[in-house]
């Protein structure tokens, strides 16, 4: 009998662990790539970075919503006849023609990994400081 009980409790623990692991895996792939640390750090506010397990539920919801909004920002191939900016102001590296760039609603463009890292900290355009979420909602209204 003792053995039976022990067996069940072990199983419970491993199930729990598996749940934890799978919830982490859901968060990881959307973490932007280039400036990443070993443990993914999230920024509920710009100067306050914490690993996912130290965020409040409210902060997790806010970050998840932000990731959802980011997916609505178009990624297009860089075209030097349309874009005035020759380089990405975040990494200061010149765009190559045909390279994937992300467009913000204010029409400023950046390398996808550069701007995604910034948007995870602050949901504003680095060049004009326009709040991205407000601009996104306005663009939906006018459409």
């Amino acid at each position: 009998m003792g053995n039976c009980l022990k067996g069940t409790s072990n199983e419970d623990i491993s199930l729990l662990r598996e749940n934890e692991r799978s919830s982490e895996q859901q968060i990881e792939p959307i973490q932007p790539s280039s400036y990443r640390d070993r443990t993914p750090v999230f920024y509920p506010t710009p100067n306050d970075g914490r690993p996912a397990n130290q965020l409040t539920e409210e902060e997790q919801v806010r970050i998840a919503r932000r990731i959802g909004l980011m997916e609505h920002l178009p990624i297009l191939a860089y075209d030097d006849s349309i874009n005035k900016n020759k380089e990405c102001v975040i990494c200061m590296i010149e765009f190559k023609i045909g390279e994937e760039v992300r467009y913000l609603p204010c029409m400023h463009v950046y390398h996808v990994s550069c701007i995604d890292d910034w948007l995870m900290r602050s949901f504003t355009c680095p060049s004009c400081m326009e709040p991205v979420d407000a601009a996104l909602l306005t663009s939906y209204d006018t459409n």
Binding site: P46, I90, P126
Partner: peptide
């Protein structure tokens, strides 16, 4: 240098 910093 603090709140209004931008990578641009």
């Amino acid at each position: 240098l603090t709140d209004d910093w931008s990578p641009a």
